[in-house]
Design a protein around this nucleic acid. Structure first.
Length: 462
RNA sequence: GGCCCCGUCGUCUAGCGGUUAGGAUCCAUGGUUUUCAUCCAUGUUACAGGAGUUCAAUUCUCCUCGGGGUCACCA
């Protein structure tokens, strides 16, 4: 069974890059009928892991991603790590090192001055003498001094590292006994049965170290997939400066979960020429072997296009539900179908849609100057009055076509073009140019409001 | 700087020795629409550079250049 994981360190919130690796891991597990588990890497106890975990869960919930089983917290597994540290010590695969931080820093500086590789000198690797007083030792693992470490990566292929280039006896437990990252990751992944590790490219250089731990503990290696980074428009690693990196900010900006997911799955992964993927299709078609080798640049144009695509294809009832996050309650509006139908083709985001809704249902308090200048000239007041009168005396006015007929009558009777009544009427109703069809707008706001807005406009611009 | 990864339109990408180098987005133009948007059609734009290998390289190899990642008692 395929078991994948998402293992964030609790730095606050879930961002777009993390979400994408989570999505990839999730999809691959689902595709194989496997499990997708969540592990919080909170060995740094200064941070509040629960808060960060909640933030991640909240984002997952919004997007419809679910992890399997219980959440694993590294902070609660100290005894497990201690056990393996002891084991390695007993087996002579790890040892206590009494070199202090200060000495280490000095060593590094000397090496840098001599333009050598900076690495631990292995002083205590096979040490028999008396150990210094007053120094709490760290635990180092015995790494191979030479030879090759090969990372068999499912995305990049085999990557060969020379042990002497990259490895020294790295620390697996700090002076206070707390285990370090590369050690606990390997143990947790192994113990949790994770056999397919999908993670960011930036972990590639950690992998040889983790392989050393796997081998020392005689654990079976998982399959690794290192996913290239997402860069900002400058080609640099995505950071907080690049706009809203908190996934939940995308909700506020008016993106639908389907849009964001679809956008992210196509960043670094593809399936031929297909652009639109439902969650079902993603689960069906996703395969990490089709992940791109190169980094991709994050760009909102495509996200916007996807978002407008999904808005167009979302049922009105669902749209109304989405819009409640902008304090728009449309459930009782009798013309909400017409309203939503008119707007779903012209909104790029839900937020934009919400403001378009308000522009229609709220009486305009402001008239765009240019629009007024353009539309209110000649005998327009006469035309508007004629139309207003027709509306007043009409009996049944419900559908857009009812209003359309009245407009048609005015056009016929006054021998004018449609534009002659359309433009001023539009400005009277909305206070500006552009927007949905006039007959629809009037149907939506109703007879009384239609009359009122025309009257308002006439009074103000007579 | 050492080590590692990467390099096809501006962007996301297809391509897996022989293609008019395809799609999407963006942009532009035209059409539809009483307006705007949608929609439809058309168009501009790419194999980083240089050596090889080969009858033939975007595709394989090497070098250069460019970009990125990583080098902690952080994760």
């Amino acid at each position: 069974m395929v078991v994948t994981r998402f293992a964030p360190s609790p730095t606050g919130y879930l961002h777009i890059g993390g979400l994408r690796t989570a999505l990839f891991s999730y999809l691959w597990a689902k595709k194989n009928g496997g499990k997708f588990v969540l592990r919080i890497e909170d060995t740094d106890k200064a941070r509040n892991s629960q808060e960060a975990t909640n933030a991640i869960l909240k984002a997952f919930a919004w997007l419809g991603l679910k992890h399997d089983g219980e959440i694993t917290y590294q902070s609660q597994r100290d005894d497990i790590y201690a056990k393996y540290i002891k084991q390695l010590l007993d087996e002579g695969k790890a040892y206590k090192c009494y070199t202090s931080k200060e000495e280490l820093t000095q060593l590094r500086e000397t090496q840098m001055a001599n333009k050598e590789r900076t690495k631990y000198d292995g002083k205590y690797r096979d040490f028999n003498g008396t150990t210094p007083e007053g120094v709490e030792p760290v635990i180092r693992i015995k790494a191979p001094l030479k030879g090759e470490i090969i990372v068999k990566d499912g995305v990049k292929g085999d990557i060969v590292f020379q042990a002497e280039d990259i490895l020294d006896d790295f620390i697996i437990a700090r002076a206070d006994g707390a285990p370090t990252y590369n050690f606990v990751v390997a143990i947790d992944d192994a113990l949790m049965g994770i056999n397919e590790v999908i993670r960011g490219d930036d972990h590639l250089s950690n992998t040889p170290k983790q392989i050393i731990v796997y081998e020392a503990l005689e654990f079976e290696l998982p399959k690794f997939y290192h996913v290239p980074m997402i860069h900002n428009s400058e080609g640099k690693k995505l950071s907080k400066r690049d706009g809203a990196t908190d996934v939940m900010a995308y909700k506020e900006m008016g993106y639908t979960p389907a849009s964001l997911l679809n956008f992210l799955v196509r960043l670094g992964w593809s399936h031929g020429d297909q652009e639109i993927f439902s969650m079902d299709e993603m689960q069906e078609l996703f395969n990490p072997k089709d992940i791109n080798k190169s980094a991709s640049i994050y760009n909102t144009e495509k996200l916007n296009w996807l978002n407008s695509h999904y808005i167009k294809n979302t049922p009105n009832s669902k749209l109304a539900e989405f819009l409640t996050q902008y304090d728009l309650i449309l459930t009782s509006h009798d013309k909400k179908e017409i309203l939503l139908d008119e707007l779903k083709d012209r909104a790029k985001t839900l937020k934009e849609m919400a403001s378009l809704v308000k522009e229609i249902i709220e009486t305009p308090t402001f008239y765009n100057e240019k629009a007024v200048k353009k539309a209110f000239k000649g005998n327009v007041m006469e035309i508007l009055s004629a139309f207003k009168t027709k509306v007043e005396f009409a009996n049944e006015l419900h559908l857009p076509s009812d209003y359309h007929h009245l407009m048609q009558e005015v056009v016929d009777e006054m021998q004018i073009s449609f534009g002659k009544i359309g433009q001023p009427l539009r400005v009277a109703l909305l206070g500006k140019m552009g927007g949905p069809a006039l007959d629809s707008i009037m149907a939506i706001i109703g007879k009384d409001e239609t009359i009122q807005r025309i009257v308002n406009a006439i009074i103000k611009h007579k």
